[in-house]
Design a binder for these strands. Structure first.
Length: 112
DNA sequence: CGACTGACTCGAT
DNA sequence: TATCGAGCCAGTC
């Protein structure tokens, strides 16, 4: 998506934040997606960490289904035990290692 | 300016 | 998958 250095102008940062919110808002019930996928979809593949920061610190994220966002290993956010409960309530299954069963619930944005 | 810190990811093993 | 290590990048101090 982008080959040149990945630094964002404040303006791009704002656009990125909005894109992240848009995408998260579309995650269906019972499905999960990852920070990296969201970042890539928003146009900044190398900013997975920033997606996490956005959801963690940006006011307004509380009203989004951000509990449906986990990392690539299916690990839930540290220090947020309620996330697992919320997901299980929607039918998301966890493996014995405490990770989301990604093969079953990963939401791959479809293009058609 | 440099060092450190993450709601991260990827490749190698 | 699990574990490691290196790469990543905006924030904070």
């Amino acid at each position: 998506m982008r080959e040149y250095p990945n630094t964002m102008t404040p303006d791009e940062a704002r656009t990125f934040r909005e894109a992240v919110f848009d995408i998260v808002a579309q995650i269906p019930r019972g499905r999960v997606t990852t920070y990296g996928i969201i970042a890539a979809w928003a146009g900044w593949p190398s900013h997975a960490r920033m997606v996490g920061r956005t959801l963690r610190y940006t006011p307004g994220a509380e009203q989004l289904p951000c509990h449906r966002v986990v990392n690539m290993a299916g690990r839930t956010a540290p220090g947020w035990s309620a996330q697992r409960t919320l997901l299980e309530r929607e039918g998301v299954t966890f493996k014995s290692n405490g990770h989301v069963d990604m093969s079953r619930h990963l939401w791959v944005i479809n293009m058609f």
